[in-house]
Design a protein around this nucleic acid. Sequence first.
DNA 1: GAGTGGTCTAGACCACCCT
DNA 2: GGGTGGTCTAGACCACTCT
Lengths: 247, 247
Amino acid sequence: MQTRPWIQIAEDLRLRITSGEYAEGERLPSGSTLMGEYGVARQTIQNAVDQLRAEGLVSSIAGRGWFVSKRRPITRLARNRLSADERTAGRGAFLTDAAAADFTPTVTVRVWKEEAGEEVASYLDVPSGTQVLVRDRVMRADGDVVQLAASYLPADLVQGTQVEHVDTGPGGTYARLEEAGFALSHFTEFVSARSPRPAEAESLRIPHGHPVIQVTRVAFAADRPVEVNFISMASDRFQLVYQIDAR
Amino acid sequence: MQTRPWIQIAEDLRLRITSGEYAEGERLPSGSTLMGEYGVARQTIQNAVDQLRAEGLVSSIAGRGWFVSKRRPITRLARNRLSADERTAGRGAFLTDAAAADFTPTVTVRVWKEEAGEEVASYLDVPSGTQVLVRDRVMRADGDVVQLAASYLPADLVQGTQVEHVDTGPGGTYARLEEAGFALSHFTEFVSARSPRPAEAESLRIPHGHPVIQVTRVAFAADRPVEVNFISMASDRFQLVYQIDAR
DNA sequence: GAGTGGTCTAGACCACCCT
DNA sequence: GGGTGGTCTAGACCACTCT
C-alpha cells in the first residue's frame, strides 16, 4: 500500500477522534506536539489536519488550536414546499425555512437586466443574448450569509410587473408570475456539489475544503421554462429533503 | 483585503482559463515556469493549482503537467424513477440509469447482518442494536467505481426472502419487499455533500479536494420505514434531478 | 536524461489568543 | 511573552513521462 505520511496521520487522528479519545469540542494536541509524536515536519501535520477539516471532523481557531467539531444542527430544507399552498401563504421559500428552523432571516436583493449567457439561455430555452432579468440574492440567517441565489427570467415576461423591483410583494416572484398569467406547473431541480472559490467560501463562512451544495431550479409554466435559479449553500449546514411518491 | 498569494495566483489562473487564454485540454505552464512568473516558491504554486483542481477547472497528470479540465459529460440521475412503473419493469435504479446514460454497469454486492447503530436505528425507527440486514454495494460503470451504497433493513422484515441473498431477482429489493406484503408508499431522500476520505476518493477516482454527493434514501411502506440506503457518488460525474409538482 | 507533478523537511514570519 | 495555527521559502527526493 505505502500511503503517504499525511494520509496515514489523518487516518490515525480520525480513528482517535471517532473512538472517543478526543471528545466533541476538545482540543487536539498542538502542531508542535504532533510533529514530535509522528516525527514529521510541520507541513505534514498541517496537511493531515486540512484533510480532517475538509471532512468536517475538525475545526480550527488560529491562535488557539484544533478542535473536534461539534456536530452542528443541520437545517433540513424540504423542497416539496414549493407547492401552491405554501406559495399562496404569502411567504418565500427562504422565509418559510427560517420559521421552521428558527432563525432570523435577512435577504439582500439586487436586480438588473443583462443578455443571457449560454447556460442560462439553454435552461430557459431561449436564444443566447436574449434580455433577461437577474435577481441576485444574499440570504442571511442571524446575520451570517448562508445562501447565495441568482434567478434569471426572460425580461419580456416580467416587463412592468413587481418582479422587476427589489421587493416583489407577498408570495414573491412566483406569485407575481402566476398573476401575470403564467400558472406554474412544476419545478425541476438539478442538485450537485462543488468546491467553492476562496472568495465564496469566505462569504459563506465555509471551512477551507468544505463543499458547497449547488441547486439549479427551473420553474415551468405549462411546460415553458419561466425562471432558472442558481442556489449555493454550505453543505455542513444544510440538507435537502425530497419526498418521492412510490406509485 | 490583502489576500494570501496562493489565492491571488489561483484567481489569476482561473481568469486566464475562463477568458480562453488556455483552452480546454491545453497544458498550463509548468510549475517552474509559474514560480518564475509569479516570483513565489513551488509550494505556493501548488496550493493555487490544488484550489483550481478542487474546483474542477484543472486536472493533473504526474510527470506530464497541469491541464485545463475537459468538461466531462455529467450523468443526470432522475430520482423520480423510483415510481412503481419503473420498479415493476424489473430493473434496479442503477441499471436503469446505465441504460439511459449508455454505460456498462457492474454491481458487486456483499450481504451480512449486524446490530443497528444509532444513525441507522433512528432512520428505521427501531431501537439501537436491533438486528439489521446490510446490503453493501459497489457500482461500476465500464469498470470504474462510480457509486457506493449501503442499505439497511430490519432483519425480521426480510427473514427468508430473496433480499437476504446477493442476487435479489428481477426488480431488486423493492420488488421483494412488496411481495412480502410491504407495499411501498413513498421515499424520502436527504441530499448533502462532503469531502471524501482519501481511501474513498481513491476508489471513486475523485481528484483530491473534490466533493462527494451523499444521498440518504428512506423507503416507507404505509408510513413505516423499511429501508435506509446511504449512497455516495462523485460530484463531477453526477447530478441528481428531482421533479416537483407545483400544485 | 531531462522535465514534470507531488510530497516532505527545516526554518522563518505573521496574526491571533491567552495569560 | 509565549504558544498557536497558517503560510511562504528553499531545497531535496521520488515516481512518472516523454524523448
